[in-house]
Design a protein around this nucleic acid. Structure first.
Lengths: 134, 134
DNA sequence: AGCTTCCGCTTGCAATTGTTAGCAGCTTGC
DNA sequence: GCAAGCTGCTAACAATTGCAAGCGGAAGCT
C-alpha cells in the first residue's frame, strides 16, 4: 500500500533536489531483484536499516564507504554503483556475459558450460523472436 | 621547532595508523606533480583548504563527492582515485556475471531472470554438489 | 625596517552522516 | 481473538564531515 510519501520526506529535510534520485532507486531496484528485505541488505552491508531506507528514498547522501559496502552486499561492482550515483563520469565498459562467466571463480568449468548453454540458447531464441516481432 | 606534527595529529584524532594513507599521499603526489599549491587545488576543486590539508594527511576521510571533485581538478580519472582510496576493490563474490547479465541487450528481462536464477542457484548450492561429484 | 601575499596548518563551529530505540502495518500460527 | 514474526519508516541522538577564521613562517617588493 504505502506508496507516495517520498516528496514529503524531501521537504521535511529541506532537500531541494527531488528531481533524480538515481542511486536510491537503483539500490532499491537491485535489492528487490535479489529478493532481499531492506533489513537484510542493511545487515549484509553493515549499515543500519533506517539509514538504508533513507538512502533508497534519496533523503540521505551516502559516503563512498557505504556505497562500497552496499555494492558488495548487492553483488554488483562498485563502479556501476558510483556511475549510477553520478560519481564517475564515464560508464565502465560493460563486460560481455560470456566473458564474465568464463572468468568467474565461483563456477566450475562444467557449471560454466551449463550457464553458457542456457545463455546462448536464450539469445538465439530471443534473436529469432525479435526479428519476427520487430 | 616543528618536527613531528603528523603523530600529534594522529593522536589528536585517535587515528593510530600512520602507515597506509593511500588516498592522501596519492593526492598530494598528483597535486605536486601538477605544481599546484594546496590552496589552489582546493579552490579548483571547490573544497576548503584546511579540509584538503587534512585529507592529504589522512586525518579525514573524504566523501565520494569530494573525491570526484578532486579527481576532476587533478585531471585524473575518478576510477584511479577511487581504486587508490580502496573504494573500488571489487568484491570476492561474483559481481561481474550478475552485472553483465543485467546489462545485456540480447536478453529480455524475463530471460535475464531465468539465467540469473540458474547462476545464483549454481553458485549457492554448487560448491557442495561439486565437491561431491568431482 | 615595514607591508603584502602567498604557503600549509590549527582551531572552533554548523551541517551532515550514521546509529539505537521505537512506531504502525501486515502476515502466519495459536 | 492475539502473540510472534516479519516488512519499512520516524525520532532523537552521537559521530563525523566540511567550513570560516585565524595562526606563524617564507618570499618578494617599496
Amino acid at each position: 500500500m504505502s506508496k507516495s510519501k517520498q516528496q514529503e520526506a524531501d521537504a521535511a529535510t529541506g532537500l531541494s533536489e527531488e528531481s533524480d534520485n538515481e542511486v536510491g532507486d537503483f539500490i532499491r531496484e537491485q535489492r528487490e531483484r535479489a529478493n532481499l528485505s531492506l533489513r537484510r541488505l542493511a545487515e549484509r552491508a553493515g549499515v543500519s536499516n533506517p539509514y538504508l531506507s533513507q538512502i533508497e528514498r534519496g533523503i540521505r547522501n551516502p559516503s563512498a564507504e557505504i556505497l562500497k559496502r552496499l555494492s558488495r552486499a548487492l553483488e554488483i561492482s562498485a563502479e556501476t554503483l558510483y556511475t549510477r550515483a553520478g560519481l564517475i563520469e564515464d560508464g565502465p565498459a560493460a563486460p560481455t556475459v560470456v566473458e564474465a562467466i568464463e572468468s568467474d571463480r565461483n563456477l566450475t568449468p562444467r557449471q560454466k558450460q551449463v550457464v553458457l548453454d542456457l545463455y546462448r540458447a536464450l539469445v538465439e531464441a530471443g534473436a529469432a523472436a525479435d526479428e519476427a516481432s520487430e
